[in-house]
Design a binder for these strands. Structure first.
Lengths: 248, 248
DNA sequence: GTATTCTAGTGGTCGGACCTCTCGAAGGTC
DNA sequence: GACCTTCGAGAGGTCCGACCACTAGAATAC
């Protein structure tokens, strides 16, 4: 994009980037201690830290106090921590997040039906069973709910879409964690998950997509109702969507 | 997520976050000079800078050397700069990016057909005309191509989906900017864009989605062919997708 | 009036001191 | 021997204070 060489920050980022791209640095690997690494790169420790901080903010590095700095392991995250902040800044509406989720997850379900493997199906089945077993405990239920959707994302075979979904859903939970569902809803919810599972297992992509869409629409309206009952204040952040001119 | 109060970084982030959420800080606004702000927050300038750097990396703040630090203006960006890095790290395949783009943009087109306003249609029409006028110049053509898709994203009325699309497409351009199309392809491409435009203008969501999907599928296979011809090296980053256990 | 130079203000870099956290090693206790 | 406690090396976190580099507008020169 830019000079890519002037700012120390970018020098660090590019250096690490090339180490990653060349395969010299893999997820889970550790980079040298700051003092040593700074000496090697011929920059100050402060500058090195700036660069590392940048990478950490993007989810590429994992800095552990007293231990060391590592290349991020685990599933990729795309702007997971930034979304809620950006939401506050740009006034994202929760229906927009739900819409994004609906689109992503329904396609994810369809892909899972097409590409899922037997172990995915088994995991889904497991979670559905657990959901039925915990309809009386919203807390427990939620765990399996989340896992169910996560397994579908993995089964889709597209880590990018999975990461995007993760970003959206985590922001959504963030927004209102308090909404405690009632048992009756949970039973219904479990039924729908079971339907989704069946559609995926029978590799019926269209059906999987449709049921997932239905499930999420239902979840949304349930949350909307609760939210309305809970806090009838008209959202303070209402901002008229200034029709921004089509910019390049 | 965490203590949210121990680390200086988070103290800064939370402070600014609350300023944003309370409406005291709007896009484009400027925060106090570092020295002054640090004094006010009773922390060192270095720590303040760490926090600001974090926010800047997430696209929330815009730091301008010699000028000041501002709350990001312009359209929201979700992990735009991180995707290519994450891609290198997790070995994202380009077909996966295309698939994500196909899904996002086809739904975006459908939404645009449902919700677009007259000025969006006018802008789309404008870009289509420009595309036809520049089929002989791939460089120029590309600009209008990008704008066309961007207008659709705006017309969808969902800034979150628009931001996600922007993230994917920018990473895609990043990956192979060199692929210069031939004029014949451009003419075909322009025709498809015209079809998309018409579907949207006539508020035919299903048609818009379908044509967009077709357009992107075509674009993908075109790039694949060029890529294959250009660099027949088998991707070095092949990694067996260790079936990670479904974690919470 | 225009072009050049200066300068105040702001972010960027430095290095080097000191604090805090983690984890394993070394001892001590039962 | 198994377990708990203590300790210390090594790593990141914070701070300070000085100085560098960039930007924009004011002052000056022509």
């Amino acid at each position: 994009m830019a000079k890519t060489d002037t700012h120390m920050t970018m020098r660090v980022v590019n250096h690490i980037r090339s180490m990653i791209e060349s395969g010299g640095l893999q997820p889970g690997d550790r980079i040298p201690p700051e003092r040593e690494f700074a000496r090697k790169l011929r920059i100050s420790r402060a500058s090195l830290r700036t660069g590392i901080g940048y990478l950490a903010a993007m989810g590429v590095m994992d800095v552990r106090h007293g231990v060391g700095t590592f290349v991020a392991d685990g599933p990729p995250e795309i702007g997971k921590s930034s979304l809620s902040l950006l939401g506050a800044l740009h006034g994202f509406q929760s229906w927009q997040m739900f819409e994004a989720r609906r689109i992503l997850e329904s396609e994810l379900a369809a892909l899972a039906a097409e590409r899922g493997h037997e172990h995915h199906f088994a995991a889904l089945s497991e979670e559905v069973a657990e959901m039925y077993a915990t309809v009386g405990n919203a807390m427990e239920y939620l765990i399996h709910d989340i896992r169910f959707h996560r397994v579908i994302a993995q089964a889709s075979g597209n880590p990018i879409l999975a990461a995007l979904m993760e970003t959206i859903t985590s922001a959504l939970y963030d927004e209102r964690r308090k909404t405690a569902e009632r048992s009756r809803d949970l039973k219904e919810s479990a039924d729908l998950h079971r339907e989704i599972y069946r559609a995926i297992r029978t590799r019926n992509a269209a059906e999987a997509r449709a049921v997932m869409k239905r499930h999420l629409a239902m979840a949304q309206s349930a949350q909307d109702l609760e939210a309305m009952a809970g806090e009838p204040k008209s959202d303070a952040r209402t901002r008229k969507g200034r029709p921004r001119p089509a910019e390049v």
